[in-house]
Design a protein around this nucleic acid. Structure first.
Length: 479
RNA sequence: GCUCCCUUCGUCUAGCGGUCAGGACGCGGCCCUCUCAAGGCUGAAACACGAGUUCGAUUCUCGUAGGGAGCGCCA
């Protein structure tokens, strides 16, 4: 139970603490979402902390990618971003405090020695551990700057009740004296996490389950510091479509890549929240519903595979059900990237209303909507061969004439005109719609013919029909 | 090797001792139809295995197998 008292209120404080060594991947995004949801559900505080103590691998680009990813998803935080690199003085103070209290000690062992015992232990079938050589006082070695090791208890078990895994227990004999500060004084991960979570009064630590094994040693540090323990919730990781660990070869793994690929943030969020968690048979959740219904305690313990197919379905669901104008706002970004001027055709909201149930992503929608905004090039060879044959001349001419007289250019009227023309010529709809479709779009695939006409617009439609007629006649003449 | 963790349709999951093991994605069929979709109806598809406990186990216990993570002066 998150319990931290502030001004008489019980308040939850969660944090998302990525290290900026790459993009914000979907696993991290889900962890962030869970943190966000837990905080929002209880009027708590969500903190963002950048764990950039690894100067070698951390980059400003990655920091930006994380920030951008959070923003795109709409996961706004209340405090931070805090950067660990700006807290080195604080860590140094705490290290000194531990040293003064005898809870930590200097270790002069060489890396070579450590590696040597590690190998021996592995060979002997043991778990490699520091042997405590310097634990009871070591001679300073000339010219060697010592590391600082945490004095881990030798006795007892560390037991904690993980909110998703249940009770986890590990014997202190399995743990060793971990390094908390390097020779240059820089702090290490397991130590900074504890100091930060303590200082930031984090009451609920939600993180990937690859940290389960770190938790007991962190708990020992908390105790050495006399700090109150937070609750822990370790969520399983996300695997690729094939069940293997997520990696570059699975395509999109960075959250922003999903934007590039045409997914709505709502869709990704909805997909992510359902990965490892459910609420009965419900599949679709608005952000508000997620906040109300989500409970970290109900999260699964097993790793789950990411299904792009299901994400696609959700994405289309949102494109179909969100107000077209709202989807259109997202679509602008793709039009810009594709170099299409949305001013040169139908309103994007109208476009969305007809294209939404025909495509899976906004990117596809963009690609397939070019014909409504720009001139079409050559007819698709196969489509033209099949539909722009001499027999198409009469239907095209007939529909062209009727359309030229049409005053109100809207789907219902357009549909009527096409039907009437077909009846008059005593042919099926296909005989007229298909040639017309190729004339209007250059291809045999497009929205229903009335909607296609509507989107292409009056002037363009008439011009394209004339052009197709010329093509048909030229072809007839050539035979 | 050692420690910790995990195991229901292909995938995401419901189940919390007695269910025809439910839903969703995907897949198949039918319907609708001017193409492609979307939609409607419908079908195939799962309790890893073995012992217990119990009148009765998917559900509880213990093993086995399989999988994952950690064992850093990385985070």
């Amino acid at each position: 139970m998150p319990r931290r008292l502030f001004f008489g209120y019980l308040i939850v404080r969660t944090r998302f603490a990525p290290s900026p060594t790459g993009y914000l991947h979907v696993g991290g995004a889900r962890t962030a979402l869970f943190c966000y949801l837990e905080a929002r559900a209880r009027n708590g505080v969500f903190i963002l902390r950048i764990e950039d103590t690894d100067l070698e691998r951390s980059t400003p680009e990655s920091v930006q990618a994380i920030l951008d990813g959070m923003e795109w998803l709409g996961l706004d935080y209340d405090e931070g971003p805090f950067y660990q690199t700006q807290r080195f003085d604080r860590y140094a103070d705490v290290v000194q405090q531990l040293l003064d209290d005898g809870r930590a000690y200097h270790c002069y062992c060489s890396k070579e020695r450590i590696e040597g015992i590690r190998e021996e232990q592995m060979k002997a079938g043991l778990k490699p551990r520091y042997d405590g050589h310097c634990r009871d006082g070591a001679e300073a070695v000339a010219g060697v700057k010592p590391v600082v090791r945490f004095r881990n208890p030798h006795q007892g078990d560390v037991v904690f009740d993980d909110l998703v895994r249940g009770r986890i227990s590990i014997s202190n004999t399995e743990l060793d004296d971990l390094v908390i500060a390097r020779p240059d004084g820089s702090p290490t991960y397991n130590f900074t996490v504890v100091v930060d979570d303590m200082d930031m009064k984090v009451s609920l630590v939600i993180r990937g389950d690859d940290h389960i094994n770190n938790t007991p040693r962190q708990i020992n540090i908390y105790q050495a510091l006399g700090a109150e323990l937070p609750d822990f919730a370790h969520v399983p990781m996300i695997l690729g479509d094939d069940g293997a660990r997520l990696s570059k070869r699975h395509g999109a793994v960075g959250v922003l890549q999903y934007r590039e690929d045409g997914y709505l943030p709502q869709a990704l969020l909805n997909y992510l929240v359902r990965l490892g968690w459910s609420h009965g048979d419900q599949e679709v959740f608005s952000l508000q519903e997620m906040i109300e219904l989500f409970d970290i305690r109900q999260v699964n313990r097993k790793a789950s595979a990411f299904s792009t197919d299901k994400l696609d379905w959700l994405n289309q669901h949102y494109m179909k059900t969100l107000p077209p104008a709202e989807v259109a706002e997202h679509l602008v970004w793709y039009f810009e990237k594709a170099g299409i001027n949305p001013e040169k055709g139908p309103s994007l909201a109208d476009l969305v209303s007809v294209q939404a149930d025909r495509v899976k992503t906004l990117r596809e929608m963009t690609d397939q909507s070019r014909v409504f905004y720009e001139d079409i090039g050559d007819f698709d060879a196969g489509a033209a061969k099949k539909h722009l044959r001499p027999v198409a001349e009469q239907p095209l001419r007939a529909i062209g004439n009727r359309l030229a007289d049409l005053e109100i250019w809207e789907p219902e009227r357009l549909d009527q005109v096409v039907r009437i023309t077909a009846e008059e010529l005593e042919v099926g709809m296909g005989k007229i719609a298909q040639p017309l479709r190729v004339a209007l779009t250059g291809t045999a695939i497009s929205p229903s013919i009335d909607k296609t006409l509507w989107l292409v617009g009056r002037e363009r439609s008439l011009a394209r029909i004339s052009r197709a007629l010329e093509y048909v006649m030229a072809r007839a003449a050539a035979v």
